[in-house]
Design a protein around this nucleic acid. Structure first.
Lengths: 239, 239
DNA sequence: CCAAAAGTGTTTTTGCTACACCCATGC
DNA sequence: GCATGGGTGTAGCAAAAACACTTTTGG
């Protein structure tokens, strides 16, 4: 680009962010979706998102939108795991103008009801299978995000992001079982998790909690580790 | 965005692609870099790249730039492994205007000399450590790309992308050793690779080849598999 | 007492590591 | 012959799968 380049010479690009915010609720992996009130794709569900402002990065925009859509307070919103997924740039993905969208994946624990914020009518937790046709290329983004999460559970400590600050190993196992849609052997799962230094730490004050009937479970919190060595492979070769 | 939104109201964004093209040459992992002839960052090396045109996607732009910079013919350029890495969007990453860059990673076998094409003076293969300070945030992009490649060798069949169409298991092992900067046990490596269905296939016509002295090695080609189950973990916990 | 969920122990199997060893070629 | 790189065999160890079993709660 030469010095005297005219930055207004071309049809301009807009840069947006789209968010795939996941949680585990009622034994299902659910995603936060908004209902579009206006054309195009009026009446369809869509991923929450918005445009990147002139002075902010895509990551900042994503975190701002996340706070708006989930209604989380600032300090809480900053603790949420947010990760860039991919960028979608097909020339015709938005009929209004050329929009390049940077998609992010966020993982949150089971929150109180989401607040519909910003320009979107309301935001709801929906199981991806029951979402119906999505606006734009959001079905593709959602599918990519789902694949990525499943893969990352294998070799990172990401699963704890779905859990509240204090959780039981049973809850953690349910996260894996929900995301992978498999059953895991409890004794073996337990050993694997506890054998990985820094994955989870026991809460020292002998605290316990019961999820109904059954023996009370010990409480853990997320540890400082971020990677899982060796990985926790999902059973895949077996029926 | 309301219907009557003025697409020219804001300072426009430009969308670019940057390419981290890797190869394994002379026992080193090398990357394709161009030398910048003009400000900003004149005289510094940079990743090859360019702007996304109004009618193309970022992926198309990346493939176009790849063909231009490497001088590969069309059919060959399409076979090259090209993968989106991440998008870099810090507001001040380019002093001229707001540029959001979608970075791609490409893996190519040891090619004949690269051709300097397009607006860049010339392109050269350089070992990342010997590249000197890079323009813009390209050092960050390069570091991210390097990490990603190392990780992907563990659980994908990507290593074959560094090899010519017909290769020996010794060459494949050298790819791993070069990227990971470790030594691997030949018998065990061999077994792992051959035990993974679809990773490599023997070239049936008992073809062989010698890289100098020593026993001639059997030739293989890349198989249809794309993932590695179980993964080929790099020795990391051991001295 | 029974069901349900947490937690412990044990056996079997698998896969990986680390070597030792043979084969074919150039010098 | 000998150095060099390709290819095969094998013993030992360690992790993981499968499953039996005990513990502690609610009804």
């Amino acid at each position: 680009m030469p010095e005297g380049y005219d930055k207004y010479a071309f049809e301009p690009f807009a840069v947006a962010v789209d968010l795939a915010v996941f949680t585990v609720r009622e034994g299902l992996l659910q995603v936060l979706l908004v209902e579009r009130g206006q054309a195009p794709w009026a009446g369809h569900r869509a991923l929450p998102g918005g445009f990147v402002r002139p002075a902010e990065s895509a990551e900042s925009a994503a975190r701002r939108e996340l706070a708006e859509e989930t209604g989380l307070a600032g300090a809480l919103a900053e603790a949420v795991h947010l990760e860039q997924l991919a960028t979608y740039s097909a020339p015709d993905r938005d009929p209004r103008m050329r929009v390049v969208s940077v998609a992010y994946t966020a993982l949150v624990p089971d929150l109180p009801e989401p607040r519909g914020g910003g320009d979107a009518a309301r935001a709801d937790w929906v199981a991806p299978a029951a979402a119906g046709p999505l606006a734009f290329d959001h079905a593709q983004i959602l599918a990519d995000a789902r694949l990525r999460i499943g893969a990352k559970l294998e070799y990172t400590c990401l699963a704890t992001e779905f859990c509240p600050p204090r959780f039981t190993l049973g809850e953690l196992q349910q996260v894996y079982e929900t995301v992978w849609d498999t059953r895991l052997d409890r004794p073996n799962f337990r050993r694997k998790v506890l054998a990985t230094p820094g994955f989870v730490e026991p809460v020292p004050g002998a605290a316990r909690l019961t999820g109904g009937r059954g023996k009370p479970a010990a409480l853990y919190r997320a540890g400082p580790a971020t990677a899982l060595h060796p990985p926790l492979l999902r059973p895949e070769g077996r029926p």
